[in-house]
C-alpha cells in the first residue's frame, strides 16, 4: 500500500512542475512593464529602474525563474497592492470559506446524483430515467451564476425563506471561534445553535447552486456506468444463481459502476473549483474566488497569480486523493501498482 502511495505521489510531480512553470510565465507576460506598474504613476525613470532591480526583472529569465521558485518554497506569493497583505495569508484565511462551500455542494450533488443515476439505469425508459435526462441536460446548459440568481430571486425575494445573499453570516451574528475555519463545525464546537442555524441558512443557497451544477456529470456517468455493468455477464450469472435483486444491484452492480464515477469526480472538481468563483461572486461569499475576482477588477495581479497557483495545487492534490480512493475501491489497482 505504501508503495502504491509513493508511486501515485510521483505521478503528480510533473504536473506540479508544469503548473509552476505556467504560473511563472503568466506573471512575466503581464500587460505593460511590471516595474513601471509597481513603481506607481508618479515614478521617475530612475525609480522604475530601481523597482526593476528590486523585483529581479533585470535578470535573465532562468534566474528570474529560480528566484520565483525560491519565493514559492518560502511561501512568498507576493503582496496584494490593494490590501497590502501578503497573498499567501489572505488565501489561507479565505480558503476555509471556499472549501466549506465546495464540499457542501459536492456532498449535495453526490447525494442526489448517484441514487438518480442508479434508478435511471435500473428503470430505463421510465419517468425517473427521463427526469435524469432532463436534469443532466439542463445542468450542463444553465450557467451556474444564472442558477444562483434564480434561487436568490425565488427563495430570498419571493418566498423570503433565505437570508440576503451577502456572505457567510448575517451581520447580527459574530463569527464562531476559529478552529477549523468551517463555520458550521466551529459553531457546533462552540455549542452555539443560533450561529449554526444562521451560518447554515447562508450556506444553503450557494451550496445548492454548486450542487445543481455538479449533479449533471455525476448522474450522467452513474447512469452510463450502471447500464454497462448491469448488462455484463457476471450480473446475469448472479441473477441466475438466485441472488436477491438488492445484492445483485448493490454488491455486484454498484460497486463496479463506482469506478468510472470516481474517475469522473476529477473532472467534476475542475468544474466545481471554477464554478465556485462565479457562485462566490453572486453570493458575496468571502472565499478565495471572490478575492481573486476583486483583485482582477482592480488590476492587482499578485493575488490572481497566487490564486491560480493555489487552485492548481489544490486540484492536483484532489486528483491524487481520487487516485488513492480508486485503489481502495478497486483491489485490482493494488496488484497492478
Amino acid at each position: 500500500m505504501l508503495r502504491t502511495f509513493t508511486a501515485r505521489l510521483a505521478t503528480a510531480v510533473p504536473s506540479l512542475i508544469g503548473v509552476v512553470i505556467v504560473t511563472f510565465l503568466l506573471t512575466r507576460v503581464l500587460p505593460g512593464d511590471p516595474a513601471a506598474y509597481f513603481a506607481g504613476p508618479t515614478a521617475t525613470e530612475q525609480s522604475i529602474a530601481e523597482v526593476r532591480h528590486q523585483l529581479g526583472l533585470d535578470l535573465p529569465l532562468w534566474a528570474q525563474f529560480v528566484r520565483y521558485v525560491q519565493d514559492l518554497i518560502h511561501g512568498n506569493l507576493g503582496q496584494s497592492l490593494t490590501t497590502g497583505q501578503p497573498v499567501l495569508n489572505e488565501i489561507l484565511t479565505r480558503l476555509p470559506a471556499s472549501a466549506e462551500l465546495v464540499l457542501c455542494g459536492l456532498v449535495f450533488a453526490i447525494g442526489i446524483a448517484i441514487p438518480l443515476g442508479v434508478l435511471a439505469a435500473l428503470k430505463q425508459g421510465s419517468f425517473i430515467d427521463h427526469a435524469c435526462r432532463v436534469v443532466t441536460t439542463a445542468g450542463v446548459s444553465v450557467p451556474v451564476f444564472f442558477t444562483g440568481l434564480l434561487l436568490v430571486y425565488v427563495f430570498y425575494y419571493q418566498l423570503g425563506w433565505s437570508p440576503a445573499p451577502l456572505g457567510r453570516l448575517d451581520v447580527f451574528f459574530s463569527a464562531p471561534t476559529d478552529r477549523t475555519g468551517f463555520y458550521l463545525i466551529d459553531a457546533l464546537l462552540d455549542g452555539d445553535g443560533e450561529t449554526f442555524r444562521a451560518a447554515l441558512a447562508q450556506l444553503i443557497l450557494p451550496a445548492l447552486t454548486l450542487g445543481i451544477f455538479a449533479l449533471a456529470p455525476i448522474a450522467r456517468m452513474t447512469r452510463a456506468a450502471m447500464l454497462s455493468v448491469l448488462s455484463a455477464d457476471f450480473i446475469r450469472t448472479a441473477r441466475a444463481a438466485g441472488l436477491s435483486t438488492a445484492t445483485v444491484v448493490i454488491r455486484y452492480g454498484f460497486r463496479n459502476a463506482l469506478l468510472p464515477v470516481v474517475t469522473t469526480l476529477g473532472m467534476v472538481f475542475s468544474f466545481l473549483l471554477g464554478a465556485a468563483v462565479l457562485v462566490e461572486k453572486v453570493f458575496a461569499w468571502p472565499g478565495i474566488g471572490s478575492y481573486a475576482v476583486d483583485a482582477l477588477v482592480a488590476s492587482d495581479y499578485a493575488p490572481v497569480q497566487g490564486f491560480v497557483l493555489a487552485m492548481a495545487i489544490l486540484y492536483i492534490s484532489l486528483n491524487l486523493v481520487i487516485d488513492l480512493l480508486y485503489t481502495v475501491i478497486d483491489p485490482r489497482m493494488r496488484v497492478a501498482a
Partner: peptide
C-alpha cells in the same frame, strides 16, 4: 499541464496576464 489546472481558473489567469 493545461489539464492540471481547473479550466475556468486557468482562463481567468490567462486573461489577467
Amino acid at each position: 499541464t493545461i489539464m492540471a489546472f481547473p479550466l475556468f481558473v486557468l482562463a481567468m489567469g490567462i486573461v489577467a496576464a
